[in-house]
Nucleic acid binder design. Structure first.
Length: 666
RNA sequence: GCGCCCGUAGCUCAGUUGGAUAGAGCGGCUGGCUUCGAACCAGUAGGCCGGGGGUUCGAGUCCCUCCGGGCGCACCA
């Protein structure tokens, strides 16, 4: 098989080659330790060992563990413990390291010089260089514009958007694409519903759109389900679908006009829905332009010329253009009637993303986001001041795991064309689906068949109209958050409370969707999603709000934030950090970049989420145990304030990577 | 039939790419609001990591096999 889902072909060492990461304090000490051991082992034993660094199991073992003795034991035919003792005795001083000891069967545990470490953080040495490699394209969301978005789409968008934020935080140049299939069967089915089932004209649909009482994407949600079930009952009605598809493809007539009207309106609804989650895009490449600008024709030529596909003369695929290699009979790319399959178009689109097609879209601005970012959409006619998109050096397609076979075909297409390097950089950022537990369906009043009731979970299905709409879920979350805010802050202006409730609700939702690893099927549970306690977004937000409260209260009492650098010497920091509690909070808070780095190489936004939670947990503990504003000792108070401020900045940065805002109050 | 994913505490999930005594949240039980607001904190119970083989100094993690569940494998998109 081409794809290795478990192995996550995301990024390892090659990623670091493309993007030079920040060099935070902890990282640089780790590197110095590894280098020191590597050099010493080379001289002492004549072994070129790749020294790995670990985190000790327990925090009281120190901050860095080196298991090199285990790796050497076999080659030297000596006991790990003996080698560890030799290494520990002979390695000599390492900058930033205060002590080192042998533990267990041969671990070498290192303790950092706490005062020096904190002083480096205080001086802001964690700010390092960052430089970009080539452009990275991330494609996500990709919802068929024929109905309202549901929770499955939210998982896609949240994963994609967070991964984009992770890449950008590490210094990468990223372009976000959201592909719009505005000419496909799903749009056609809704048009069939309007035209043939409801006998509506384009003007009727326009009236529907103008009616403020109608949520158009919701209307289409029901209509799509209706049309789908009608096909089942009256299979001959499928002829309506073909007729509509042909009209759309030809781009002429009432049905085509209606299709554009519907698709454009639903795209607007999706953009609005996603904006509630703080998800933004750079460009919307549309299927209609892929069609009109003949992207497929260009790709077809390349595929034929380079013999990536062949015209089958016999067997069940006779008369089709087939791509060999993926299965015994190959994958049909062009049907015997001459029309191209979905994957064929996808290969053309993927070629464009890498700048390999020899064609480009034209673009026009669609809207401007609040932060000034302009969203562009593809068009088939040239415009003034033309922008350019695509031409990436690496492409992540955020698409659920059910489509992994098709993603394999796309990569195989690139490989067949001789673009092995680009095939390697075509990454299917896959994730498992969001399903509904039977209990959840019962809670939501979704009727289930007897068969479905026996299952562990039920797939969301747009066709069946089965699912939780994204906007409904958000409305639900906001209402619940608002009730909590109202209970605590009646004195605040209503509009402000609403804003805070929205931030909390979105924080809860994004965190909920991110805390699962990508390979885990989310069996959606409404109660769990609506929770604001425990491992949730609001928990993380609350910790940051508490930190801010301390600093605000300080000023309310007429004090000002001390000049930390002037008041806290390395000695003072070292003195205060003799407290294990303080040291652990500071250490945890200093590892944002380590956590980000690990999450990027694993391709797991969930790792960032988990780090944020652990950080919040450490702070909540700290907060509870040590009153800061009442502290008598000046040195300790200044130190605690610095810790609070440092924590606040680090947690806000982490939350920002997750797309979670910190409210003014909670 | 073939391919991929999952199986870890009552429930939902982590497990740093093979390391030290397997963790968190929820739920259960016990305790803590006159403090920088408890959307919080502390304590406690709860485990044959689906079963069986193997590789290794060392396995929840890698290999084989079996069991159970899910998802793919169209001239649909």
């Amino acid at each position: 098989m081409l794809r290795q889902a478990k192995a996550c072909p995301i990024i390892r060492s090659d990623f670091c080659a493309a993007v030079i990461l920040k060099v935070p304090v902890f990282h640089s000490i780790e590197k110095q330790v590894a280098d020191a051991f590597h050099a010493h082992i080379q001289v002492r034993y004549g072994v070129d060992l790749s020294v790995t660094i670990e985190q000790p199991r327990q925090s009281d073992f120190g901050e860095i563990a080196v298991p090199a003795a285990f790796q050497l034991a076999k080659r030297l035919r000596q006991a790990p413990k003996k080698i560890a003792a030799e290494l520990a005795a002979e390695i000599g001083p390492i900058p930033g390291v205060a002590a080192l000891e042998v533990a267990g069967n041969g671990y070498i545990n290192l303790r950092l010089d706490r005062g020096a470490y904190a002083a480096a953080l205080l001086r802001g040495e964690e700010e390092g260089m960052s430089a970009a490699g080539g452009k990275i394209i991330v494609e996500h969301t990709n919802i068929n514009p024929n109905k309202a978005a549901h929770i499955g789409h939210l998982r896609n968008a949240t994963l994609g958007d967070t991964f984009v934020r992770m890449l950008r935080a590490s210094g990468a140049q990223v372009e976000v694409q959201n592909y719009i299939d505005n000419t496909g069967v799903q749009v056609a089915d809704v048009v069939v519903g309007f035209h043939f089932l409801e006998h509506k004209t384009t003007a009727d649909v326009e009236a529907l759109l103008a009616d403020p009482a109608v949520r158009f994407d919701y209307y289409c949600w029901d209509l799509y389900a209706h049309t789908s079930s009608y096909y089942k009952e009256q299979p001959e009605s499928l002829a309506w679908r073909s007729e509509t598809l042909h009209a759309i493809e030809a781009g002429e007539g009432e049905l085509a006009r209606m299709a554009h009207l519907v698709a454009d309106a639903v795209v607007q609804a999706h953009l609005k829905t996603m904006l509630r989650l703080d998800v933004e895009y750079d460009v919307l490449p549309r299927e209609s332009e892929i069609l009109h600008l003949q992207f497929w024709a260009a790709a077809f030529e390349q595929l034929k010329q380079r013999k990536a596909i062949y015209l089958e003369s016999e067997g069940k695929n006779a008369g089709c253009w087939v791509m060999p290699g993926l299965s015994e009979e190959g994958k049909v790319i062009v049907r015997s009637n001459g029309t191209v399959t979905y994957v064929g178009k996808d290969i053309a689109y993927q070629l464009w993303k890498f700048g390999l097609l020899g064609k480009d879209f034209h673009y026009r601005p669609l809207m401007t986001y609040a932060d000034g970012r302009v969203l562009w959409v593809s068009t088939d006619t040239p415009t003034a001041g033309e922008h350019h998109f695509g031409n990436g050096s690496r492409v992540y397609n955020v698409i659920d795991a059910r489509q992994s076979y098709l993603q394999d075909v796309v990569a195989a297409g690139l490989r067949g064309l001789g673009y092995a390097a680009q095939a390697e950089q075509s990454i299917h950022f896959s994730y498992e689906m969001v399903a509904l537990s039977p209990r959840c369906c019962a809670d939501l009043g979704i009727p289930l068949s007897e068969e479905d009731r026996q299952r562990p979970y039920v797939e969301v299905s747009g066709r069946k109209g089965l699912g939780v709409k994204a906007d409904d879920l958000m409305d639900n979350l906001i209402a619940k958050a608002l009730a909590e805010v109202d209970a605590r802050h009646v004195e605040k202006p209503a509009a402000e409370r609403q804003r805070v409730a929205e931030q909390i609700a979105i924080g809860a939702l994004r965190y909920f969707l991110l805390k699962f690893t990508r390979t885990s099927v989310i069996a959606f549970d409404l109660q769990e999603a609506l929770s604001f306690e425990g491992e949730t977004g609001p928990y993380v937000q609350y910790a940051a709000v508490r930190a801010r409260n301390i600093l605000r209260k300080l000023e309310e009492r007429g004090e000002t934030l001390p000049d930390f650098a002037a008041e806290l010497s390395a000695e003072a920091l070292g003195r205060q950090l003799q407290s294990e509690d303080f040291w652990q909070v500071l250490l945890a808070a200093s590892k944002v970049d380590s956590a980000l780095d690990g999450a990027l190489s694993a391709g797991e936004p969930a790792h960032v989420a988990r780090y944020a939670f652990q950080l919040a947990q450490a702070f909540n503990n700290f907060y509870h145990q040590y009153p800061i504003l009442q502290e008598e000792s000046r040195e300790k108070k200044v130190f605690l304030l610095w810790m609070t401020d440092f924590f606040r900045r680090q947690l806000e940065r982490t939350a920002g990577i997750l797309g979670i805002q910190i409210p003014e109050y909670m």
